[in-house]
Design a protein around this nucleic acid. Structure first.
Lengths: 363, 363
DNA sequence: GCGTCCTGGTCCTAAAATCAGACCAGAGCT
DNA sequence: AGCTCTGGTCTGATTTTAGGACCAGGACGC
């Protein structure tokens, strides 16, 4: 045993890791981008680049401006690795987890914890590209570079769901599912929620009701709107004015809508249903600036819950969801997919419960 | 094949080399002197020394002043199957992660992800019992049943920190540290933040300023208050009225304080600094009910950031923290503890940056 | 006893490695 | 055209490592 040792700089270590991935056959066509690598290896982009240059020099791969890094010479061991790799699950979200709403983040966290216990790796993939009108290209690249055993779609929209259905990849939808999409899904019953909200407002004497919905309507938003209309149509009260307005989730849009409703019309609504707690904040603070008070001048209901609503005065009337319950249901479906079981087409619906708060007043 | 790799510093590599020499039986009585080692390994004496300290901590050898380094135990862990025991890290938090503020939850999440990559298990332990005045009993039980290799204390208070210091358990404090506690810690510089906030309000012409602080003052709250007072004392403006009021984090308490300030006195404050985004919401919504407008009637500053503040109109002036940065610093300390490295007593301070928003107006 | 030479312990400064950004141009998609 | 991705390039901060100087204690020869 000699007293020498192989002194390995970080760059060399990273190069080793990359090399072994290439030889192992994990990356057959393309190597992840420099930024992705540096992110997942927890290493700066510079050291990553130096390591890659070692790889280039060895002729294992080559960089292509604007496209990525192509593998040139893959494996010395031609026999497929066929390693019984540990399972992995990919989660698709529109934004980095830190920017999701806490309840969504919490759900993912629970999944992560439980999967960890099963020895399964959960990897997050966040990009608005998956949520556009035509995510095909981005998704192809995604699933090519990340061969997960199961996918979980969060806050997913129709193109995303359709693509996964067509590709036949194993996946579970956390959130509402669109008509015609046949995939296992778990969701809260937003349709029932909104129907209930309208009914309650009507019973309290409100006749001019506005539903603040999202412009970019996800399946859940469509469900909600259906429930809203059902609630309106199902009433026997007369002279009910109910309408839906659309915002784009940003303060500016919500604020201008609110101003329009309350300053631009002679008969402002007496009650609002708001689809999203953030939007609730926007509406509430804009109303305050306009001089309207809750619930004296206008009643408010939030369709969703979020921890911060506990700190708003008056406490918002809202529907409360059990996120842990949701996570458990999702896990159940994921597990059955990982076990190679059939993808049950079940659309599990969880019914939230109503918390009255103090933001609704009899009219 | 996973994309992880064991990141090894030079020190760790040297320690490995030394360890293998000991286990291989090359050195049976004495290890070469530090200077000899550093010479033959082509490594500076400092890195050599750090590596040796790891060896000392493992009980493989001991330094003897003036003589040399004696081998204590040559064989690898006696009997034991020499399991490369997977490390585990425990995180102590006051509430279940779903009820923490998003930024805290996010930080823990990042830790979890990174530790996962290192093959380290992160386990959460949440209970108010650890945060009481005398957590001794609960903590004894906790560490007995959960022998983690490192602990992370989040939102910790003095008794908790003191106990860990006395017990000498390896731990890192995420958040402010109390005077006299000598443990590695990472925190945002709240003192600087509050000093800056006061200075800015004074410069804008505000003369009656109130700081909403938490009754149960954690170290960070104390720091903030210090900064607040420093900012006030350091001014050359005259007739400044600055005071601190305390709430218990709940809406009721904040609301009654606000009413007291704005209805109970002839001269309500013209500007408020609020230590907590939830509290900011409470203050803001209570003010709205009282008929005060932001920023026309009163200016508001939030000491902390949270995603939902983006949706409040007007956008709150606040200080923005880079949670990822915090997580990375914590990870750094944790890693050095797991490696058996020195527990650096460094108190890392991260300075947030100010976002002006629209909730402050010249007086 | 004394000096000398070795040892580890402590501290400091300079160089090197690494990190964390910014900005650019090329490529591909909408 | 505009957007967003890619790799290429550069820069300034931070961390790690190198290479010293200096100290006190032990060993040893005188």
């Amino acid at each position: 045993m000699s007293l020498t040792f192989k002194r390995a700089s970080l760059v060399a270590q990273v190069a080793d890791a990359i090399r072994s991935q290439i030889h192992g056959g994990t990356w057959r066509e393309w190597i992840p981008s420099e930024r992705e690598l540096s992110n997942s290896l927890h290493v700066s982009r510079n050291t990553c680049r130096f390591a890659l240059h070692m790889i280039y020099r060895e002729g294992l791969a080559e960089p292509i401006q604007g496209r990525g890094i192509r593998v040139k010479r893959a494996t010395p061991a031609s026999g497929g690795p066929a390693v019984a790799t540990r399972h992995s699950v990919g989660v698709i979200i529109p934004e980095p987890i830190g920017r999701l709403r806490p309840s969504n983040a919490l759900m993912i966290e629970e999944l992560q914890a439980e999967l960890y216990d099963m020895g399964v790796r959960l990897q997050l993939h966040s990009s608005p590209a998956y949520y556009g009108g035509n995510p095909r290209h981005a998704l192809e690249k995604l699933v090519e570079k990340n061969p997960h055993d199961c996918w979980i779609l969060v806050l997913s929209q129709r193109p995303l769901q359709s693509w996964f259905m067509q590709r036949g990849l194993p996946c579970v939808i956390s959130g509402s599912i669109y008509d015609g999409v046949e995939l296992p899904s778990v969701d809260f019953d937003l349709r029932a929620v909104c129907r209930h909200a309208v009914g309650m407002l009507l019973a309290q004497g409100h006749r001019r009701i506005v539903f603040f919905n999202r412009q970019l309507r996800a399946a859940g938003d469509l469900d909600s709107e259906m429930g809203f209309h059902e609630g309106v149509r199902g009433t026997s009260y007369e002279q009910v004015e109910a309408r839906v307005v659309y915002h784009d989730d940003h303060l500016a849009s919500v604020a201008s809508l609110t101003k329009q409703l309350f300053k631009g019309s002679m008969k402002p609504p007496s009650a609002l249903i708001v689809a999203n707690p953030y939007c609730y904040l926007s509406v509430m603070s804009t109303l305050a600036r306009l001089g309207f008070r809750v619930p004296d001048d206008v009643s408010l209901i939030s369709r969703d819950d979020d921890p911060f609503l506990n700190h708003v005065d008056p406490e918002p009337a809202r529907y409360i969801y059990d996120v842990t319950h949701l996570a458990r249901k999702v896990m159940f479906l994921v597990r059955s997919l990982l076990d190679g079981g059939l993808a049950k087409r079940d659309a599990v619906r969880i019914v939230p419960h109503f918390s009255a708060g103090g933001s609704v007043r009899k009219q």
